[in-house]
């Protein structure tokens, strides 16, 4: 009997263990295939499946040349830096604006508050495609002429990320004890001081959660980067998409390029997963 119990005293479930092991394996296989293929030579990759290299690791020709080829030859190196330059400001800037707005929506009373907030909820659902033709006009040569530059993309991602950020932060802030803010007010703190000294530090978990989501979204975005960045400023995802489009030559670099595009979000994801799950479960879902 004791062998069938886990450390915490619950019965062991062989069925769950088997099914979950299978599912976890199934979910990992495609990525494992990519990782292995990215280290295989062009000839090997074209003449046999990646699993043959896995089963016979000493008979296969391993190489890192795909990575150097993608990084310098296909310019994934500058795409990688562009991705960072695009993604980091586009993650941090919306949070600042949204945090103030979320504070107002949570702790202040004002006319049309409900209407403003409902508008925020409504635009969360609106497809971002609505903004392309008008924003190409405003940011493009007929307007400000900044289309193609980083700032155009920062602005767009800030606008597109704002509704969700305000919504997430407001949901989190409304779980903070109101009495803290009330007592700060009695002590003579202005709203500005209350925000910086109390509410912003207390909201760090939600901010971290949104930052993770927004970073992944901006880094992984194809549409905005493709339309609003000129080719020397473009991101690693656009580079990968262009490489996918060219059949034949450079195919062996594709897997290495894909891995280069995955590695940063994966690191961010693994390190901040804890925050993200907490934020997702406390912010997006309460019902």
């Amino acid at each position: 009997m004791s062998r069938k119990l886990m450390k915490d005293g619950r019965p062991r479930s062989p069925f769950s263990i088997t099914v979950m092991a299978l599912l976890a394996l199934l979910w990992s296989i495609p990525t494992i295939g990519l990782l292995i293929t990215s280290f295989r030579t062009r000839d090997d990759a074209q003449s046999s499946g990646w699993w043959t290299a896995l089963f016979n690791p000493f008979g296969a020709n391993w190489t890192a040349s795909n990575y150097s080829g993608a990084w310098t030859g296909q310019d994934f190196g500058s795409g990688f830096i562009n991705s960072l330059v695009v993604a980091i400001p586009a993650t941090i800037i919306p949070i600042m604006f949204a945090a103030f707005a979320a504070y107002a929506f949570t702790f202040m009373d004002f006319r049309f508050k409900e209407l403003f907030f409902l508008l925020i909820i409504a635009v969360m659902v609106v497809p971002i495609q609505v903004s392309f033709q008008p924003m190409l006009g405003i940011l493009g040569p007929r307007g400000l002429g900044i289309s193609g530059q980083y700032i155009a993309v920062w602005l767009l991602h800030t606008g597109f990320g704002m509704p969700l950020c305000i919504y997430t932060l407001r949901n989190y802030m409304s779980t903070l004890p109101r009495s803290v803010v009330e007592s700060a007010k009695i002590d003579g703190c202005s709203h500005y001081q209350t925000f910086w000294r109390l509410v912003a530090p207390m909201s760090i978990p939600a901010i971290a959660a949104f930052a993770t989501l927004q970073f992944l979204w901006v880094w992984n975005d194809l549409l905005v980067a493709k339309l609003f960045l000129k080719s020397e400023n473009t991101t690693v995802i656009v580079k990968l998409q262009q490489l996918l489009g060219t059949q034949g030559q450079g195919q062996e670099l594709l897997t290495a390029g894909a891995f280069i595009s995955i590695i940063v979000p994966m690191i961010v994801f693994v390190t901040l997963q804890r925050f993200m799950i907490r934020g997702m479960t406390s912010g997006a879902v309460k019902g």
Partner: peptide, 8 residues
């Protein structure tokens, strides 16, 4: 983990 991976 695939949640971190872009569609491309």
């Amino acid at each position: 983990l695939p949640m971190a991976i872009s569609s491309v």
